[in-house]
Design a protein around this nucleic acid. Structure first.
Length: 111
DNA sequence: TTTCTGACACTAG
DNA sequence: CCTAGTGCCAGAA
């Protein structure tokens, strides 16, 4: 099995853990695209990232994960989550225009 | 082992 | 802006 870097630790582990760890490190008011997260952990499978978040139930290691900070590359939300996600983002000071977020402004590069 | 399915990305038209 | 096609890869069936 391939090992993936686990952000914030000095370890590697499963794809799932790497994804959740990465998401858990996205700062308040910043966002990342599914592709960014994948790339960040050394993968090229953005779809797999979504799968992990869906299965996570919103938490990792018993702690809540800021899944709402992950959107599509075009700054849109997943359809079934639109309301909740936009609401949470606005609460962090992220401006939402016409249901979209400006990636140019809020994208987080990993530090 | 083969097949199918995503909270996706990208290119073309 | 929208649709279609292709690539992607980890899991579940």
């Amino acid at each position: 099995m391939t090992d993936y870097p686990i952000t914030g630790t000095h370890r590697t582990g499963t794809f799932d853990d790497a994804v959740l760890a990465a998401v858990a490190h996205i700062p308040r008011g910043r966002v990342m695209s599914y592709g960014d997260v994948a790339e960040f952990i050394g993968s090229s499978a953005p779809r797999a990232v979504g799968r992990v978040l869906a299965a996570s139930g919103g938490e990792w290691d018993g702690k809540p994960v800021p899944w709402h900070r992950v959107l599509t590359a075009s700054g849109r939300c997943a359809h079934h989550l639109e309301d909740e996600q936009l609401q949470r983002l606005r609460a962090e000071g992220v401006s939402v225009t016409d249901g979209r977020i400006s990636m140019r402004r809020y994208r987080w590069d990993g530090r």
